[in-house]
Simulated scan of single mutants.
Amino acid sequence: MKPLDGLVILDLSRVLACPFATMLLAEMGAEVIKVEQPGSGDETRSFEPFAEAPGGSVSGYYMACNRSKSSITVNLRHEEGRRVIRDLAAQADVLVENFPVGTLARRGLDYAELAEVNPRLVYLSCTGFGQTGPYAKRKGYDTVFQAMGGLMGLTGERGGGPVKPGLPVADLSSGLWAAIAILTALRGRDRTGKGGHVDLSMFDAQVALLTIAAARNFALGEVPPRLGTEHPGRVPSASFRCADDRYLHITASDQHWAPLCAALELDDLATDAELSTNAGRVARREEVMAAMSRALAALPRGEAFARLDGAGVPAGPVLALDEVLVDEHVQARGMVSRFDHPVLGQFPALPVPLRFEGWANPEVGRPPLLGEHTEEVLARRLGMDAARVAELREMGAL
């Protein structure tokens, strides 16, 4: 038994943040019914990169966030299609949507309407800026929220302009917030018997992640500068170029300073009492960083890492994506898995990174073909026969 077995999620969301959330919950046991637009489906089905096979091509973007779900096609602009959604919501535990503010209210599918037919429903609305506030009607994407939420302003090289991270951090972290919100609301429902509405703003989600940077502002009035890989409040914590032009990242606390100096033969720094504390090293950041940079520039990365790791100093090589995927620990932990796809055959995937005792572990499932489960879900959930499904499809509701 998986932890979320028996949980039914009606997923009206598209693109990345919420599909990522519902995929995580699906692989931990929830039944996720993904509702897609007839003919086209979730727009990420048309997003690159495409995996090619003799039987056709499939979006890798779509597959990355939509495994282990059922796909049904429903036209939300058609009254009969909306009736199907209302009937499915009447049986669901959770509904997830990320339409612009007011869209589903105009179609009679907002929380107020659906709570009438299912008071136990947990209804999560994920929008760019939330249901209220001066920005509520604005549109935005991941990078807009990174920019406005402060992350991009903190990221970049010394003296340089803002830089976005290499992953869509706002989308992915909002997906994690969505999963947390859903599970939290379900726990509340367990206690009260009633569902509720969750208003998740992706902008709010980014502001909430500012944590330590905001703490520096609250405590010191500081706006942390862009420092590349360096940490504003800890020295050393940075990536260093080694003799073979590879990079090694080191993050050390006070207890690591003496063994670090010994490993890198930094005798002058080791005997300087002021540098034995992080405060002293922060005050003399340029001196410390210059000395460490010189020492590491004289060593190949493998040798430098072996010395530091052997001395118990936290360090790790800066790996490219392809290096990560074949790393021995990644492989030993099963962090690259595969699913069987009807078009592509076996295809790699990154599993949910949780291991349980007392429940079955998450399993990697395959992403659905567009509308693959329409007949099965409507028959099982709503008792529709094939003739009724065909009739709804003919009238444009499915």
Rank of each mutant, 00 (worst) to 15 (best):
P368I: 07
T44R: 05
A283G: 11
A360Q: 15
E80T: 05
L319K: 15
Y247T: 00
E286I: 03
E27T: 12
D385M: 10
D171A: 15
A30K: 06
L321G: 05
Q206P: 00
W359E: 10
P224S: 10
A332T: 13
D385C: 09
D42C: 13
E222G: 02
A270M: 13
A178S: 15
E48V: 14
E391D: 12
V343G: 06
V35E: 02
E372M: 10
G312N: 01
V223H: 06
K69P: 03
D385T: 04
L24V: 13
R216N: 13
M395W: 08
G133C: 02
L350M: 14
D93E: 05
E328W: 07
A170P: 01
V101S: 11
A185V: 00
A279L: 12
S173F: 11
A105L: 04
G29Y: 03
T155P: 10
Y61N: 11
A295D: 01
P342F: 11
H249F: 11
E287C: 04
R380E: 12
A387K: 09
S46C: 04
D42L: 13
C65T: 14
L299E: 09
D171V: 06
I212V: 14
T277Y: 08
Y123M: 02
V364S: 01
S59Q: 04
L378W: 06
T22I: 07
R388C: 10
L266N: 05
A243D: 03
V58I: 15
L260P: 04
E222C: 07
V32N: 03
T22P: 05
T143K: 09
G196T: 03
S337V: 04
V223T: 15
G60H: 10
G159P: 12
F50Q: 03
V198K: 12
L200Q: 09
E43L: 14
A279W: 01
I72C: 09
R366L: 08
F50S: 02
V122Q: 12
A89Q: 07
K34H: 15
I212H: 14
L354R: 08
A390S: 11
A214C: 03
A105D: 04
G81W: 01
M23G: 09
